[in-house]
Design a protein around this nucleic acid. Sequence first.
DNA 1: GAGTGGTCTAGACCACAGG
DNA 2: CTGTGGTCTAGACCACTCG
Lengths: 233, 233
Amino acid sequence: MAVYLEVAEALESDIRNHFDSGQFLPSEMELAERFSINRHTLRRAVDELVNAGLLLRQHGKGTMVVDNKIEYSLRSKGRFTESLEDIGLQASCEVISIREISADIKLAKRMWVEVGTPITHIETVRCIEQAPVCLISHYLVSHLLPGIAQTFKEGSLHQWIEMQYQKKIRRDQSLIGASLPTRAEALQLKCSRSLPLIIVRSNNRLKESNEIIEYSVSRSRSDVFEMKINPEE
Amino acid sequence: MAVYLEVAEALESDIRNHFDSGQFLPSEMELAERFSINRHTLRRAVDELVNAGLLLRQHGKGTMVVDNKIEYSLRSKGRFTESLEDIGLQASCEVISIREISADIKLAKRMWVEVGTPITHIETVRCIEQAPVCLISHYLVSHLLPGIAQTFKEGSLHQWIEMQYQKKIRRDQSLIGASLPTRAEALQLKCSRSLPLIIVRSNNRLKESNEIIEYSVSRSRSDVFEMKINPEE
DNA sequence: GAGTGGTCTAGACCACAGG
DNA sequence: CTGTGGTCTAGACCACTCG
């Protein structure tokens, strides 16, 4: 068996036993010395664990452990099955950012509004036991929700809207896809870049007027979530 | 930009232009000389294309081109949006295998049948313009569909069942997830192991008796498909 | 045996993060 | 500035395939 594979295995059990998620490994130099191998060989071993999703390299900073015991406890529960009615609607632990933007041509098309329409862009993250599991981008038609950028702080955005604005929201069609996370997404979700995300894009309308009020894109860890569809016939 | 990335790009267009699927590349030594770089750097470049699914290394033999031009024509059309009613139900070009098995504990649980119940397991592949894009595993309750293993050859399995057995089928709940392909799946779908698949698991029942007649698992290329959900309210 | 890819070592320098 | 990971080069030897 190749040296780098043996080192990878040894390293993995070291990490499982002595490291928590978010911690940084010793430097490549130090690890190479510890295993009495060349740095290149050590790197090859680390490559294995990076590909497996256990480690995340950060240029100039170090190599972080990203697979953690929390994740195990999540996994042991099995994957969440999330009713589609809730996706993008339910309690989001935390707001990451709120920005006022105006619709570019792509967004305008998706939301059926004019190019340049003022949009409130809210990024949220949903956590389970402190572990981020889902990122959601909400694009809201600003003039239908005056002041929301100032007032909304946390929790369920849709509940907030229904409470504060006395508006009922209706879920429109959704599209479900999958892709690998960007570097930024992997960092935010504290996961490997080789863990697929489930992407759900959906439009939401006002129940009365049928106007589109929101377009949202959610990106959920596929090791945690599974989307449930109930045909209503 | 790193040398190995530039070489990877140059190599890729070389391959697209001058190589067919199944052909072997010149040796690493020769390629390294041709690009005036070290063999290690050349290998790093080839790594990229191997990961991308364009090349396949074979120890002692050489490096083979495994990509197909079809993939491009698919991509250029954009992704299919597939109505959920169709997933796992619609025409499957080709049957890969048909086997009679008996339900193990896992399958029995999913299908709500007794352990040991005879099941007909049909593997099919859906193609678009000769390119495989979706693998489907059908698990059918054998005694409800006598002789299906002998008679079904190709096309839509569900149409076949409705025609031959005069039974109406009703889609039950579905679960949608995502994961990376196994080695075997990547080979069958002629795609890279880093292209996520969309996994849809669903049960189908007889419309009249409400008995479960089928459990199916489909695995679709996420660069080709996107699943559409219409809320029916 | 000749030729291919696979691994390991060694040393150098670059690019990025953070004090 | 220091320390980290990222890249490139160079040379050696091993393991596999095939004639």
